[in-house]
């Protein structure tokens, strides 16, 4: 078995979290921060600025008027939403890359991320949860660990898939057995090293184990379900396939039944076509 430390050290090989974004996030943590302070930091990063504008104007946020400038966007959105958007804007390029280990073509992991984000919102609305500002971003980021684990899964894929095929293990469990760590845990460690907010780190860490926090985490179990539905639909699914556990207790927790799942799929189909702009972020 490979040394887990080698995998964790490889987190440092990812491009550093952009300075602009971490400074903007710091400012946004201060309730007394002014719009001008935030703008003064973000405006110098064109890619982040462009992505913030595109996200503000996407159907997801549903703002009534078109946002033309950073200032307008910042005024219309709350601090928490803005934090989310900045996080998504800065990490999208990692998700857009080809991922050989999981056999995902360029753009596929981002597609999976966006679909999970949309379904999270659909589920949240359906179960009457209030819109949590971290929900969409945590859903977008849930598989960030696959970006890090990519090369290790590539090297040990045959052994991992053999464990899945023989031992009734899920792909996540087989990753743990073969590599000593799985993509959820690696993703959480990546988030920690980039100072992501704690609720997003937790959602990444437990996105396949929501039963641990069913009663006291407002986003992780929803993201879990959204991910399972996205996987079921085969959206941005790699050679790990659908080999993840469907946990009935999470559905029960929200009072959802098989028919609800089908209705969520129908709602998703409608909304997915409206967010092609998010899919094109880079």
């Amino acid at each position: 078995m490979i040394d887990v430390d080698v995998i964790i050290k490889s987190i440092n090989k990812l491009p550093p979290f952009p300075d602009v974004a971490s400074r903007a996030l710091q400012i946004l943590d201060d309730p007394r921060a002014s719009v001008d302070q935030v703008i003064s930091v973000i405006q110098y990063d064109q890619a982040v600025t462009a992505n913030v504008l595109k996200l503000c104007n996407s159907a997801y946020y549903g703002l009534r008027r078109k946002v033309h400038s950073l200032r307008e966007g910042l005024v219309l959105l709350g601090n928490a939403e803005l934090k989310s958007i900045i996080l998504a804007s800065t990490t999208v390029r990692l998700f857009q890359q080809e991922n050989k280990g999981y056999d995902l073509a360029k753009g596929e992991l981002w597609k999976h991320a966006v679909a999970t984000g949309i379904i999270s919102k659909i589920i949240s609305d359906r179960v009457g949860a209030s819109e949590h500002p971290s929900l969409f971003t945590a859903a977008l980021l849930h598989d960030i660990g696959k970006v890090v684990l990519n090369s290790f899964v590539d090297r040990y894929f045959e052994q991992i898939i053999a464990l899945v095929n023989e031992g009734e293990l899920s792909f996540l469990e087989a990753e743990s057995k073969m590599l000593g760590i799985n993509h959820a845990e690696v993703g959480a460690k990546t988030g920690e090293s980039w100072n992501f907010p704690g609720d997003i780190v937790q959602a990444i860490r437990l996105h396949h184990s929501p039963e641990e926090v069913l009663d006291d985490d407002p986003i992780t179990p929803i993201i879990y379900l959204a991910n399972i539905i996205t996987l079921s639909m085969g959206i941005g699914v790699g050679r790990d396939g659908l080999s993840y556990r469907g946990k009935q207790e999470v559905l029960k927790h929200y009072g959802l039944k098989a028919k609800d799942l089908q209705e969520i799929v129908v709602d998703f189909y409608d909304q997915y076509s409206k967010v092609q702009d998010i899919l094109k972020l880079s």
Binding site: E168, S170, I228, L231, S232, G234, G241, L242, S243, Y244, R245, G246, K247, Q248, L251, K257, A258, L261, Q262, V265
Partner: peptide, 16 residues
Amino acid sequence: GSQVMDSSGVFNIGKR
């Protein structure tokens, strides 16, 4: 018609 690993069968849209 595939499905995630689920012994309860609630998630089996594929089978349906």
